[in-house]
Design a binder for these strands. Sequence first.
DNA 1: AGATTATTCGACCATAAAGTCAATCTATGG
DNA 2: CCATAGATTGACTTTATGGTCGAATAATCT
Lengths: 200, 200
Amino acid sequence: MTNLDTNRAFNREAQYAAKRRAVIRSASGAFRRRGYHNTSMVLIAQSLGLSKAALYYYVKSKEEILYECHIMVYDAMDAAVKSVRGQGDTGLGKLQLLYGAFAHLLTRDGLGLLADVDSLKGEFQTTVLKRRGSIERAVTRIVKQGMSDGSIKKADARVTVYFLMGALNWLNVWYEPGGRLSGEHIADAFVTQMSQGIAK
Amino acid sequence: MTNLDTNRAFNREAQYAAKRRAVIRSASGAFRRRGYHNTSMVLIAQSLGLSKAALYYYVKSKEEILYECHIMVYDAMDAAVKSVRGQGDTGLGKLQLLYGAFAHLLTRDGLGLLADVDSLKGEFQTTVLKRRGSIERAVTRIVKQGMSDGSIKKADARVTVYFLMGALNWLNVWYEPGGRLSGEHIADAFVTQMSQGIAK
DNA sequence: AGATTATTCGACCATAAAGTCAATCTATGG
DNA sequence: CCATAGATTGACTTTATGGTCGAATAATCT
């Protein structure tokens, strides 16, 4: 096996992985715009110039696509959580960085939080709920930290977090990529609004 | 035709209307919990102790049920908007009343904002979007009023409103009637958070 | 070039769930 | 107690769509 061989083989795998990702990304957009159940496999296929059958070469089921869409977002969010570790002096400072990062993910980066968790079954649903819970807990932890260090006003942390996450989730419905409002603009506005809402 | 007749006839109609409402209400809850597409007509029927066929005596289609669910919420919200007319001295004061009323609707009163607008077609969808737009415009108007009278900090009113409406919409996902958090509690927290987020 | 493997497709199958309908049961009025 | 209108049903049809499969095509290796 020559070096070229492994390069080729690698290329193959990379090609496959790239196309698989393309399927997920394309579906993700369609799901966000039209909803999971209003998006047929044929439509996803067409938007990629493929036949429906070809899709199943890259993916085991429609549900798996939805699952991967969720995972994609939560991976990005986990990365954001990790990236603010150490940064930001107070809890509020940390939260500002994190919340801004979230807003960027969901606008500039074209990712979309999906609400369709109920369409996932069994293991898929369990995992996704776990991931969502994990994110929420991370945010809650920061909020509580802020309440301890005096940067955030004391209140029910759970409600606070749900309030903030809700605003983010609603982006799916109204944010249009390339529209009047840029991701930066929105992220700024959200961070400001969030900060003032909870700062002490 | 005696007086009794008209009473009876009225009773019939009232009975019919009441049962129809029961169908909508029951479906509304199921839609909120499981999602529109994950809720079959058979399930709705069962939860009312009826057969699926009987449902179609009260309702023309599943889509019509979804439509009515939306309308129910928007009617309630319109009423809330009307009820704060005249009340509240500043824009912020008005908004506090309204936002609290909204939060109450969506918790205590068991109504649920649905995001499934994409599952509605044609006239149905148009109307629902119109109603949603109308509510958003009403809220925007109040926010702008607040920005004029100095009670609300100047910012992009549209983004502000979306932010606030998003937090409300997310209630569907996490609020559980009869759970640890009462509707009152949540409404209070939301109003506080909202106020501080935008007050000058 | 020929063999082998990766990719794609047309045509089909399976099924869940919406929607229909003639027949039945139930209440109301005379 | 019969007649009529209201209410409900079981059994059926229809349809949309997710998913499968063997064959065909394209790419890669020796």
